[in-house]
Design a protein around this nucleic acid. Structure first.
Lengths: 125, 125
DNA sequence: CATCTATGTTGACATACGTCGAACCAAGTC
DNA sequence: GACTTGGTTCGACGTATGTCAACATAGATG
């Protein structure tokens, strides 16, 4: 623990947690398992503060943002940290410490997956 | 309160509650107000049971389903009714009684609105 | 090493939420 | 009218959630 850098973490552990989820909501009734998976993602975005944090990160230049850049959402700093952790646990964000600051970035595959869920009619029957 | 019928309620109060919401999450940081609105919808889908019910209705023939057709999700009937009410309050479903049965149908504009929220890059800058 | 700044973690608290059984309402049937 | 079936509402219960203040940790800096 002297010179080991914390950097990359290139393992795709996060992406495989969330990317392959479920068919569009309109295609067929969700199974219990699919519903559990998908609900976890929706739930993570089901809080105004988390939604603002997520949007702040997602819209930030380079697709990533330092906590210090986005923590102005009207709640205390511990609360911000708490919500960022939840978003991370849900697989929506990843974090990385670079020097003094911690940067969060969105997991793009998740947005795509959730977007597909809400597709009206993906394949004309 | 003697002969006033409860029937139609044709006012488009529901649709205007949810349809025009917010820009894509990736476009700019959400305001507090936008976050409130959008979070309400995500929250409604943030429960496995509700997600199954919603999916069941959305995927049902004709875009609508009787409660009796979709209430097999592992919880009691009052709980099903409770969740359907929540989905309705969130503007995701509408209900209508036809004779003995009550039919729920999805509000299509909502799916579209939420789908847009999750768009990665709607307009190439 | 002392110390300062930036984040995360813990513990406590009030509130919201999901769930059920019981009671209730609405239509249809006898 | 009484009984049956479908659905909602009510009241209660346990658990999860959002929030904060206080404390802990990680780097940077002198």
């Amino acid at each position: 623990m002297s010179n080991t850098k914390v950097l990359p973490l290139l393992e795709p552990e996060v992406s495989e947690t969330v990317a392959p989820c479920c068919p569009p909501l309109t295609e067929r009734p969700f199974t219990a398992e699919e519903a559990e998976t998908a609900a976890r993602m929706f739930k993570a975005l089901g809080d105004p503060v988390r939604l603002r944090l997520f949007s702040a990160v997602a819209s930030h230049e380079g697709g990533e943002a330092c906590v210090c850049d986005i923590s102005d959402v009207g709640v205390s700093q511990p609360t911000v940290s708490h919500h960022l952790k939840k978003l991370k646990d849900a697989g929506l964000l990843t974090s990385e410490r670079r020097g003094t600051w911690v940067y969060y970035r969105v997991e793009p595959s998740v947005l795509a997956a959730m977007g597909k869920l809400l597709t009206i009619a993906p394949a004309a029957a």
